[in-house]
Amino acid sequence: MTLSSLTKPWAATSYGFLDASAKRELRRKMLKAIAVPGCQMPYASREVPMARGWGTGGLQVTLTLVNPTSTVKVIDQGADDGVNAASIRRFISRVSGASETWDTLAASIVQSRHRVPEEVMREDQILVLQVPNPEPLRGVEPNISIARQMHADADYGKLWLTLYEQIVRKGRIMQGAAYPSMVNGRHVMTPSPIPRWDVPKLNMAKHLTFLSAGREKRLFAVPPFTRVEPLVFSDRPYRVEDHADLTCRRSGVSGYFMNELPIDGGGSAFEVSDSNLGIKAIQQSEGAAIEVGKTWYRNGEFSA
């Protein structure tokens, strides 16, 4: 072996921004993440032209998966037109030649910050969630070495205790986002800060989910048909947000997760959080031939 035999011909840029060795490392870790669902796998987390904490983890996974035939949707809190989402989507398509879309049904890869789309994802789709804090135990154990040991021992007693304390103090579980969930009956993961509304969508889903934290350099996965069970006490059932009866003031859809907007003189108005679902509903009501896919929630009830 010589140095020249290890060297590739010169190129101005690597396809998909990441170099080949970065992609191989990610690919190895992504396979291990699938093999042990919910278990956090360390990875190198290369530099990308974006500050850590703005979706670099999800971006690296997407850049590894993407090819010129991919169609990419990027959402930020449900919206396709947020600055962060639009910038990431444009960057991915510029460095890979992949098509861009806002439509969940048309996407092959959905990269998301803090929401799972309302339309049911198919078995050929991949959901990439950006994760700020991948460690569900951080709140109860700041030392990551001890937290790793606790994962190894499946020692989640302290997590149960925080949930119990919330019930004792407030009468209900106050954890709003990033609800700790048991994956495949073994590893507790944080499903990234998606609302409680979205956690059931990951349970026994048809699609493949990657969760990647670029700043914390860890990724984990939820393969299709994998149990994802929110930690709950048997006498206190898991409750999602009370959004079933709210109606979007712009599109008129109801029974989906809503953004609450304060209005003058007090009170709130609501807009559907999955903005493209609202757009589709408006276009449909105007007579356009738009297909709205089957949704996870129907009439405000989860029914997968």
Partner: peptide, 28 residues
């Protein structure tokens, strides 16, 4: 204007092979 570098043969092959491996492990 940034132009997209088309994937070379190695990248295309690796990407497609990885996709097969990923789905194979996702759906045993």
């Amino acid at each position: 204007m940034l132009t997209v570098a088309p994937p070379d043969a190695l990248e295309l092959r690796s990407n497609a092979t990885f996709e097969a491996l990923m789905w194979a492990l996702s759906r045993p």
